[in-house]
Write a protein that binds this DNA or RNA. Structure first.
Length: 301
DNA sequence: CTTACGGCCTGGGTGC
DNA sequence: TGCACCCAGGCCGTAA
């Protein structure tokens, strides 16, 4: 499951192979994850790659501005759950589920492999690029503490939902939100607005430290993830809660539990990350006594 | 507007 | 051996 550290690792690998290369030809297999497959085939050959960047969980392959073009285009790739971008010699056999082949001018080939095809690929003009990447939130690795906390303060949603929301922060997925919340000792169901300043600060530190450490270890390979050279990451060895249901908490020894939060499996330590106060009972009592809540002030338009 | 939730896409793994 | 089912992440529509 490529999240920020995995995508960052892929990008760093691609950066060693792609800049300066020219795309010679494009060959496509299944194309239902590509916005406009015909455009890839017709417009990409002849383009030179100038750089590779990460934006949230997107890989951005920068293309040289062509003569006469107002602005340079780029290839946006989202790896979804099982997407892989790898480079290697063009004459090596392709892995199963490889659906895009970009032949390069040095005999190498950039390939996109995706078992589930939950990924996305789009050749984007300046405007389209802005439409896709523009809504993405703060990069949690680059964010300062002030900006990070500002994004959460006062929000009434569960903290886990906000960490996963790519418009709030871009790059976090299920693994790193759970790991970060465990390290910060915050239950995934906590309402963001209920977090004390010390908890927000702890969360900021936890997120940054964990993502940086995961990048250092080249990401987590829990299922299919491999980097641009086809190698697995090592951060899965450091997971403290993710998919450790029923095993002992590294900090206190209590058994890790799994609950659904924000529609996602969420792993946490019930002792280190105390659940927020339930309100079911209170609400039921109130309903018996007070039939109707007082009408709220309605602001005139 | 904000938030919650269910459905959808696909196919590997699991359990019967 | 086969088969139904679950689940993954992102996105979208709907409802409160």
């Amino acid at each position: 499951m490529p999240e920020l550290p995995e995508v960052e690792t892929v990008v760093r690998g691609l950066r060693e192979a792609l800049p300066g290369r020219c795309i010679v030809s494009v060959r496509l297999g299944k194309t239902d994850f590509i916005d406009d497959p015909a455009a890839l085939e017709s417009d990409l050959p002849g383009n030179r790659i100038t750089g590779v960047r990460r934006h949230g969980k997107f890989v951005v392959v920068e293309l040289e501005a062509r003569a006469g073009a107002a602005a340079s285009a780029c290839l946006l790739v989202h790896l979804g759950m099982t997407g892989q971008l790898t480079t290697g010699r063009a004459d090596t056999p392709a892995a199963p589920h490889t659906h895009v082949f970009f032949a390069l001018d040095d005999g190498q080939e950039l390939r996109y492999t995706d078992i589930r095809r939950f990924g996305r690929m789009v050749l984007a003009s300046e405007g389209l690029r802005e439409r896709v990447l523009g809504p993405l939130g703060l990069d949690p690795v680059e964010a300062g503490e002030r900006d990070f906390c500002e994004r959460l303060r006062g929000r009434r949603a569960r903290i886990k939902a906000l960490l996963l929301d790519q418009r709030v922060f871009s790059g976090m997925g299920n693994i790193y939100t759970d790991e970060s919340l465990w390290r910060a000792r915050i239950h995934p169901k906590r309402i963001a607005a209920s977090l004390k300043e010390a908890e927000l600060a702890r969360l900021y530190r936890a997120v940054g430290d964990i993502l940086r450490e995961a990048i250092r270890l080249r990401g987590s390979s829990v299922s299919d993830y491999v980097d641009a050279k086809g190698e697995r990451g090592e951060y899965q060895m450091r997971h403290r809660v993710y998919q450790r249901n029923g095993r002992k908490c590294h900090r206190c020894g209590a058994l890790i539990r799994r609950v659904i939060v924000a529609g996602r499996s969420s792993y946490f330590c019930p002792r280190c990350q105390p659940a927020p106060r339930g309100r079911k009972r209170v609400r039921r009592q109130r309903q018996l006594k007070i039939k109707k809540a007082p009408a709220r002030m309605k602001k005139p338009a």
